[in-house]
Design a binder for these strands. Structure first.
Lengths: 207, 207
DNA sequence: TAGATTGTTAATCGATTAACAATC
DNA sequence: TAGATTGTTAATCGATTAACAATC
């Protein structure tokens, strides 16, 4: 499928998904774009437009069936793939991500950990043994890893990205504050935490 | 100052800042929008437009003085304020943020930690003692905390946000996957990690 | 001077918002 | 039927890109 879907729309889908799960837990079976918008501070028009990009999920005069819409969004986001994750760099942040419970509830599972430091290799985090980076290719193949998460210092990030690509991962989630170069066939999402914090600082400094 | 500056522009400033620091370390004193754009995969026109929003920092025919531009961006972002941070929720993620070295290099310092769990209260993380949430107001005042970081489960996040606002923080950085309601005078930035990971999943699922 | 490069104005592109016909 | 609500088209708004005069 090759439509032109904006990143803004894609980034709102997880918010819809998250809210539909909460609504479902409240035993509400139908929701309007109005109510969904109210819960997220997003206009109902925006929500209908976003959803209409992917199909007709609602019923005129009624609203959206919560369970159906949730499943549809899950499929649009590709969550049914139950992606397998590897974390490279088991420092504080990598270790925290290895323990992050919200991933599991979205169908992701952490199946491999890597670190360069021989003092960390061999230890276990959340029940997962830490491997040496030098064994990356073998372990990633054996564990059928889909996504590589980079939580190493910026200086090492490009070399880790290269190794991950060579090992055959299908996507990269990068926490290192540096621009990575990867083949266009490998989707890359950057999660530079200092961007958000700096933006907050900016807003706090205004008037 | 009350111009209408887009969030997209604000989010690019930390990238410029980060790159200027690297460039400065390479002992390069002048850089063109072209070279800066090449290093970040951003068009030079975009960079000039972003910077022109805040003033005239370059010299026609020459480029930008790296050190000056870096300082100007730092001031625009309000980093000279050297904000003081408190982290509420010392689980894996909160603990990782308490140890995150990149914050210090941007002028932020973590000065207080809070947790609800009495087994965690009294322990120290990165040399900082964990306080009970019930002492939030007193400690935040005493430590002159500017920014509250929320790393508690979603169910507790709104109540923590309310307490932080009541205690007088000037801004909130929220990692809990839930929409928070805060007064318009308190800037709020959401850092929902599952958004980025879900977006990656989406892109990996396309064709 | 000739070449390089900014700052700014104009043109284009894309995303959001508004309006409303369709229909439950 | 009357009221509610979607899906979609049209209008608006805002951000990016292109062009170029100014000038180092």
């Amino acid at each position: 499928m090759k439509k032109n879907i904006s990143q803004a729309t894609i980034d709102r889908l997880p918010l819809y998904f998250r809210t539909l799960r909460l609504v479902e837990d409240e035993d509400i079976s139908i929701i309007s774009s109005d109510e969904l918008g109210r819960r997220l501070d997003i206009t109902p028009e925006q929500i209908r437009k976003d959803l209409a990009t992917f199909g007709q999920f609602g019923r005129k005069g009624i609203g959206y069936y919560v369970h159906d819409l949730k499943d549809n969004i899950s499929n649009i986001l590709g969550l049914q793939n139950r992606w397998r994750l590897a974390i490279v760099g088991v420092g504080h942040l990598g270790g925290a991500l290895a323990n992050y419970v919200n991933f599991a509830s979205l169908g992701f599972s952490v199946v491999a950990l890597f670190d360069r430091n021989s003092r960390v290799v061999g230890t276990a985090v959340n029940g997962i043994r830490v491997n040496s980076i030098s064994h990356m290719k073998r372990v990633i193949t054996a564990q059928a890893v889909d996504i590589g998460i980079i939580t190493v210092p910026a200086e090492e990030a490009q070399s880790v990205a290269d190794s991950l690509v060579a090992a055959g991962v299908k996507g990269i989630w990068n926490f290192a504050p540096i621009k990575l170069t990867v083949p266009p066939t490998v989707p890359l999402v950057n999660e530079d935490l200092s961007v958000g914090l700096s933006a907050l600082s900016y807003h706090m400094s205004q008037e």
